[in-house]
Each structure stands twice: as C-alpha cells, then as structure tokens.
C-alpha cells in the first residue's frame, strides 16, 4: 500500500497490533463512514457537484489493496473513493479535494471523480481508463518490473467498446493487468438484465483471459481471491480478471434511486460490514466503530479548516 499525503490516521487505516479481522473491519468501516459523511455534507450544502458512493462495495476495495505493493498502480473510475481510501488512507486529502480546496489531493481541480496520487488515478469517463491501465502495464513489462496495473470497472462499463479493444491487446501482449469488475447489479438506473447480453464471464474468456468469478460481500473470501489472482498475475503474467458480483446499497450518485425497496433491503442484510462484523464481538466492533467515528469527525474538522 502506498503511503501518501502526510500522516495517516491509524484509527482509519488500522493498527499493527490488532487482528486481521479487526483491521479489515476497520478499513471497511472507514470507507463506509467516509461515504455516509460525504452524503450528509451534500445534504448540508457543504459540497457541490456530485458524488458516487460505494456503500455496499467496500470489501472489494479493501481486499484488493491488501495485496498491492509500492510500484503497483490502480486506475479507478467515477466510484473511486473506496479504492482511493483503501489504497492511500488519505481521507483528509480526498475530502478537501471534494470540497474544492487547494489543499485537496488535486488542488480542487479534479474533485470526486478525478483523483491522482502516487500509484493511483481515477477518471470519470467509462471505459477509457482500461486502455490507460493497460498502457501502464505495458510500461511495467517494458521496464522489466514485476509491478502490476489494476483497473476497477463496473458492470455498466462493459457497454464500452474501449474495454474489448483493450482486453484483446492485453491478452495478445500478456500485459500484467488485473481487471477488477465490480458487478453491482445496476448501471446507474438500468439493471444488468436490460444492459448486458450473454455472460460477463464469457466476455473476458473470449479473449482467453482467466476469470475468477466470485459472488460475495465477504471481505475474507474476497481477500483470498484477490491474493491468489494477484500472486498468479505476478508469477505468470497477465492479464487476469477478478469478477465480483456485489451490490450498491446507495443510489448511483445522489437522490437517484428507483430500485425496488425490497431488493435493496434484502441486500442490507448481507452487506460487507454485517457479514464480516459477525466475526467480531460486540465490544470489539463497538470500539472500532467509535474510534472510526472520532477519526472521521476529525477529518471533517481538519478538511473544513484547510484553505
């Protein structure tokens, strides 16, 4: 994990002394509370523009980032906060950025969807980040590095032609590229059933690319899958695909959710914090929740105070 932007808050990124289960829970809780805090800051009129929260998908980001190291690169999309926070821990830089402040990670120029930090970039246009991530993988290959390039896309992104142009090239050239496809069942307001013909898995396999498909919100299962895929990518070259079937619990951006309430409610019962939280005692969970809460509150205060 790359460390950026000054001092990290272990209340958010985890302590060396705590158990793996505690640490993973804390890191997911961090992302969840950051996103929920953003949404309330929007409601309070503190933020402008838009945001795409990843509530419900935190386990994907946390699991993948656990297995990256310095030199690896992550390219993310419009729904990038979780990826960025899991990769960098830089809550203050991100919040300041979304607040449009000079102290933000891109001086307020990029905002929510356009983040750049060591080993991390995001862009809000669907599809076009995939060839860029492949280009970074090609750079790694040319320079003889064993670093990998990871790109996060969603089910909706599978509608973009740039994805398939890139899969073809990445497979032909065996680029060290890991495509993490987070299928959260809905592309903005359109369900996968109205968006996608055939099989997601087959789309990748058509290029001879190995696909690890997992239907889970359990961070431990995802963590194991990510570990194996990333290890295999470093060992044998690429590309590879980690296809995660998950669910977005919040609206696409803000106040734009017309999904069936019952469907969403059912998914709240199996969301990552519930699933993994069961592995902790109530006391352990409460202690982490409290410390994340205090840290997030400090993040907001700090970011508000920045120029």
């Amino acid at each position: 994990m790359a460390v950026v932007q000054g001092v990290l808050d272990e209340r958010l990124t985890g302590y060396a002394r705590e158990s793996r289960n505690e640490r993973l829970y804390r890191r997911m809780r961090f992302i969840r509370r950051f996103e929920e805090t953003l949404l309330s800051l929007f409601d309070q009129g503190e933020l402008n523009g838009t945001t795409h929260a990843c509530i419900g998908q935190e386990a994907d980001a946390v699991a993948v980032m656990e297995h990256l190291r310095d030199g690896d690169h992550v390219f993310s999309n419009h729904r990038c906060h979780g990826h960025y926070l899991a990769q960098s821990g830089d809550a203050v830089g991100l919040l300041a950025e979304i607040m449009g402040k000079d102290a933000g990670v891109c001086r307020g120029l990029g905002g929510s969807q356009h983040i750049c930090a060591p080993g991390f970039k995001s862009n809000g246009v669907q599809g076009g980040i995939v060839p860029a991530a492949a280009g970074i993988a090609l750079a790694n290959q040319l320079s003889g590095s064993d670093a990998i390039s990871v790109v996060f896309i969603g089910d909706g992104t599978l509608g973009e032609g740039a994805v398939y142009e890139t899969l073809n090239i990445a497979a032909l050239w065996r680029l060290p590229l890991l495509v993490v496809c987070e299928d959260n069942a809905w592309a903005q307001s359109t369900p996968v059933s109205a968006n996608l013909a055939g099989s997601m898995r087959h789309r990748f396999e058509a290029f001879g690319i190995p696909v690890r498909e997992i239907d889970s919100t359990d961070v431990l299962e995802l963590d194991d899958a990510a570990a194996e895929e990333i290890q295999e990518l470093r060992r044998t070259g690429g590309p590879r695909v980690l296809l995660i079937h998950t669910y977005r619990l919040c609206h696409h951006s803000k106040n734009d959710d017309d999904r069936p309430a019952a469907e969403v409610e059912a998914r709240w019962l199996v969301e990552p914090l519930v699933v993994h939280g069961k592995r902790l005692t109530d006391t352990e969970r409460q202690a982490i929740d409290d410390s994340v809460e205090a840290a997030i509150s400090d993040v907001v205060t700090t970011a508000k105070g920045l120029a």
Binding site: H73, K121, A134, G135, A139, N140, L142, A162
Partner: peptide, 26 residues
C-alpha cells in the same frame, strides 16, 4: 522489436494504451 509494435485495429485503445505508457514515463 520491443518498442515498435503493430496493434490490432483499435484506434481508441492505441490512444489509450499510449496514454498509460505516457503516464508511466514513456
């Protein structure tokens, strides 16, 4: 041979892969 590469007929990806190369210092 490593640095002069024929690509598939994929102009969008040619530009996009070039973008990634450039972002990585090439």
């Amino acid at each position: 041979p490593d640095r002069v590469r024929t690509t598939p007929i994929s102009e969008g990806a040619i530009a996009g892969v070039s973008a990634g190369l450039a972002l990585a210092g090439y």
